[in-house]
């Protein structure tokens, strides 16, 4: 593919902003619109943009496939692990009240961790899907 100067410059400028916005959506989801699902999708959109502009091989150097598989499982493990942690601390499964010193603090920590798990799984699952489809075209 012939490199296109305009695409390269704009992509280099805009990809960090998209990643930053994804992190904002992830961690500001308690107070404004946003959360793990949206942040994960936006994060993966930034990397998909990178691989569309700079080529699939370069994108695979940033995030190798085995990492993606580990991360996709890690998100579910974080989510389920928060539930089990609250079981050990004396609550029901996924009852975050006992995670912190009082109910509000516990709920805050629990929601933050759970949304982080969602974000990691969604971002890496979307990237797995994209790389599977895009990689299939190569002989």
């Amino acid at each position: 593919m012939k490199p296109n100067l305009i695409l390269h410059v704009i992509a280099k400028f805009i990809i960090p902003l998209i990643l930053l916005f994804a992190l904002y959506v992830q961690f500001h989801g308690d107070f404004g619109p946003g959360g793990g699902f949206q942040a994960g999708v936006i994060f993966s959109a930034a990397i998909i943009l990178y691989s569309l502009v700079f080529g699939l091989e370069n994108a695979e150097k940033i995030i190798p496939h085995h990492w993606l598989r580990i991360l996709a499982s890690l998100g579910v493990v974080i989510y389920a692990g928060v539930g089990i942690e609250s079981l050990f601390l004396g609550g029901n499964y996924l009852d975050y009240t006992f995670l912190g010193s009082n109910q509000i603090a516990g709920q805050h920590l629990g929601i933050l961790l759970v949304e982080l798990g969602v974000g990691i799984t969604v971002a890496s699952a979307m990237l797995i899907l994209f790389f599977a489809f895009a990689g299939r075209g190569r002989e």
Binding site: G35, F37, G40, V41, V122, A125, M126, L129, A132, F133
Partner: peptide
């Protein structure tokens, strides 16, 4: 919100 993200995952499965 969750149905949209699950929807794209299942659509990808159908496309595969």
């Amino acid at each position: 919100l969750t149905a949209i993200v699950v929807g794209v995952a299942t659509t990808a499965l159908a496309l595969a």
